[in-house]
Amino acid sequence: MLKLVGSFITVLTSTWLGFHLAMQVRQRPKQIRQLLTAFSLLRSEIQYGNRPLFEICKLISVREIDKIADIFRFSYEELQKNEGDTTYHCFHKAIRQVWGQTSLKGTEKEIFLDLCSVLGRSDRLDQIQHIDRAKEQLQVVEEKARLEQEQYEKMFRTMGVLGGVLVVILLY
């Protein structure tokens, strides 16, 4: 009886692990797309609006959803605090707080931080050019992430279940 319960728990755990990994893989392209829309918003705000950066951050955090909104909300709060940190520092802090909860990886982080080091430091045209460059890079990353999703999502799910069953058979 105890053996049965134990094996059931093992299968359940490994299945959950597989589904969790599959979800991470599935979420990544979606969140990159959200980041892309956020960049588009940022770009149009810089091009046509006259608002300061922290207000734009607040606007984006209202328009976007879940984790991406969190990044911009945290950076809005950091920028609001006015503790003498640079813009880059504020964004960096926000990213460090939220990034662990997202499915995004290091490449996107680098692109984002690269853009943040430019924001608010030069004229309008230069910033827009930098945002365009970041968007292009993100699009490439998104394409790659989508290919990865197609390849690995189903595999992780099946492997979770099968791996659990294999462990149970081995130990039974």
């Binding site: 690995y152 595999m155 492997m159 099968l162 791996g163 069953v165």
Partner: peptide, 12 residues
Amino acid sequence: IVAMIHTILKQM
């Protein structure tokens, strides 16, 4: 089980 895992990994 190993045969199934083999098939799936090969498919991917």
